[in-house]
Design a protein around this nucleic acid. Structure first.
Lengths: 166, 166
DNA sequence: AGTGTTTTCTTGACTCATTCCAGTTTGTGC
DNA sequence: GCACAAACTGGAATGAGTCAAGAAAACACT
């Protein structure tokens, strides 16, 4: 753990990962670095995708380790977890700004969407029913470019419901 | 299985359920009536809660039957399914209007929220990345009145069957 | 009403994402 | 270097939901 430092941070997208981990009070381990590095370049990956990628890099990593890393980093604010209904959870490194997501109903592909008003215009429900609201999550559902053109696959139970939304 | 019919529709809150089922092209069965009747009075119930309730009314109903009813009615537009991240799916009978939801992070309790004041803004993502967007889902996360006051313990499974209130 | 056909319900096994457990390894502060 | 706690391994388990084959019931028609 001495000479290999070289900091081969080619992308340099997320700065020093070890530093950020330490700053968050987390130990610097190979699985964590690999997970964070992967997600920095491949946002919105599922736990499964992360696991596959990390295994290719490190040789062998247990499923549990990946979930643990994802949880630890999510809790520490290094990662954000998004769970589109009907799809496995996805993770991203963009945690600072408030943005929403665009999710493909069919393949689950997810993209970031900045809120039109920049800030958080959606954070004001008309009635809170006594709830202490701390977050407004907005998900735009649709079909990604690829799924739009490809034939109607297995997913897609023919929802023929088109309501003008509000 | 003969005389017990008597049509004891005491509640009759949502109009003629059999009529609505037929209008939707679905057969009128006891499980379906029971599920719809329960959901009309207990919106945002989980499949498990519905199953428990229906079993108390009809004696015995299979899990599969409940899921089938929920699916059939969702597909026919009689029910709407909501899947808050990290919580089992919930169902409601309000399908006509477009409204959003307020979900308790701890117990999953869900309430309706009429459209946000400036509703339209969020329905127009700044970038669609080529997606064909057909729905904007808004979920307000927070803590319900009960969970706000109760101990700040971690997640509470709260498998309370038959929550007969609302 | 009786019959037939289609849809719906039952039972039970199964998938998938995720978590729990017990034991071992590894990073970090001393 | 040493020790301890945090992190990882491997495997089994959980919970929500689905699939499949056969039995039962609902609707339609005579």
């Amino acid at each position: 753990m001495t000479l290999s430092a070289t900091n081969g941070n080619t992308a340099g997208s997320a700065g020093d990962l070890p530093e950020r981990l330490r700053a968050a009070g987390l130990r610097v381990t190979k699985p964590r670095l690999a997970v964070l590095r992967w997600l920095a370049e491949h946002p919105h990956s599922t736990a499964d995708q992360v696991t596959t990628a990390v295994r290719q890099q490190l040789g062998s990593v247990s499923t549990q380790a990946v979930y643990d890393v994802l949880h630890a980093c999510s809790g520490a604010g290094l990662l954000r977890r998004i769970e589109p209904a009907g799809h496995p959870a996805r993770f991203e490194t963009r945690t600072a700004d408030n943005h929403h997501h665009l999710v493909c109903r069919r393949c689950g592909r997810t993209e970031d969407v900045d809120c039109v008003h920049g800030a958080a215009p959606c954070l004001a429900p008309s009635t809170t029913a006594g709830y202490l609201v701390d977050e407004a999550e907005v998900v735009f559902w649709g079909y990604c470019p690829e799924c739009r053109t490809s034939a109607p696959g297995p997913e897609e139970p023919s929802h023929h419901h088109e309501e003008g939304r509000s």
